[in-house]
Design a protein around this nucleic acid. Sequence first.
DNA 1: CGAGTTTGACCCGCGC
DNA 2: GCGCGGGTCAAACTCG
Length: 499
Amino acid sequence: MEEQAQDRREIAFLHSGEFLQGDFDSMDHQPNESPVEHDHDHKPSIKEVDFFAAKIQPYDIDHVRTTRIVGSSGFNDRLNLVNSRLGISSDDGDDKTKTQISRLKLELQRLHEENLKLKHLVDEISESYNDLQSRVLLARSQTQVEGPIKQHEDIIPQAVSQGLEDRRPMGMNNEVTATTLKRRSPDDINDRDLHQSSPKTPKLDQNKNTTSHEEQQSPHDQLPFRKARVSVRARSDATTVNDGCQWRKYGQKMAKGNPCPRAYYRCTMAVGCPVRKQVQRCAEDTTILTTTYEGNHNHPLPPSATAMAATTSAAAAMLLSGSTTSNFHQTLSSPSATSSAPSFYHNFPYTSTIATLSASAPFPTITLDLTNPPRLLQPPQPQPQFLSQYGPTAFLTNANQIRSMNSNNNNNQQLSLPNMFGPQAPQVPRDMVDTVRAAIAMDPNFTAALAAAISNIMGGGNNNDNNNNNNNKVDEKSGGSSNGDSPQLPQSCTTFSTN
DNA sequence: CGAGTTTGACCCGCGC
DNA sequence: GCGCGGGTCAAACTCG
Ligand SMILES: [Zn+2]
């Protein structure tokens, strides 16, 4: 009930056109107003606070709640801080000033501590999220496939990667596949070394050695399992998008049909991290940068990177969770609304119009399109063209569009988004709107923020408001961090396309 | 000098 | 079998 009301309110807000400005103002200049303006109890509080923001992701509710509490306290403190500071400067003597200063220091310290706590929390949340996600994935695929259920148990965080990553025929990718796939084999331990040691032989070995269950099952009656990819389209002048990770370029190629070269990067935050990304400018519009992520990080991420990471894994999960089911065939055969391609998420309410799987494409790919022209307040207008590169697809509109769409279709709330993690999760990630709103306001890493929000949705929908706030944070502070480039992302139509 | 980038060569899958 | 294209490797190079 209450939620619905709130949602409506937010939608209204979006449409009102204050969407952008509201937050700009409140965030930059009048922190204390934001709470008043938007929400009574949640998100606004955290927006200012932390720093680890991005880290908070869709996890389980308990964590979320905790986080929120902590966060808001921090925020309030901050408010006091600001207010008092203002008071000081205006009219008082040294003594007062000094007391104030010392008070401020104390507060600062406290804030610092809280930040640390938050950080901790975030880590925990992150873990539990991963764990949860993997379990859900496994459970899901197992219920449908009737696969071995035990795995479920021993597979921990990494299971995520497992679940998300490929089961495609070997040889197509190397280490990535190797690392992620091999877990079951005894060689597992060597995985890390694979990367460094002999790049080419391992490939071959894999081809032979990989006798893993998954692999063997699939060949015939199942579609080849592939590694999911998540690509993000955003406007950026920089050569790459600042997603908070450290990347090392390992190759560049001219792609067919595009004058702009495609650059290949791999994550260097951890030695054996399988994550890679491809960066390429759009042929038609060179201001648009398409970044395609593949794989999951096998190491802790800095706050600024978690958003994107969460997105990619969630999105990938979304793809693969569907593709890994045995039902998939049936799905394939059933004609689907949007395209010639099979409906991917047949079992999701709106999915037929959201995503489809193109059998022709080498990888299932989700595309987040953040390039749409300003003013997302207008009615949704999916733009199929840009997906051409990835083949026939359907779309997932962005947060706002999703919202408005939903509101059109069934009076509001409830993101209809892939309920992939189960029938439950009826809750609306309303925070998503906040995330987007705030992210846009703060920009630099809007991509990441939005992505995180989306991952919220995809991750099961029930979460917290923290995400948003956090994301903002990240944007703010980490924006200038390591990588240094920040896309200019107006707002967006978030589009998902699956190949 | 180490870390990151550049770039040509190479591998592999796929379609013809 | 051949050619093409995507993806990766690794020596050479650049930069701080
Ligand atoms: Zn990584």
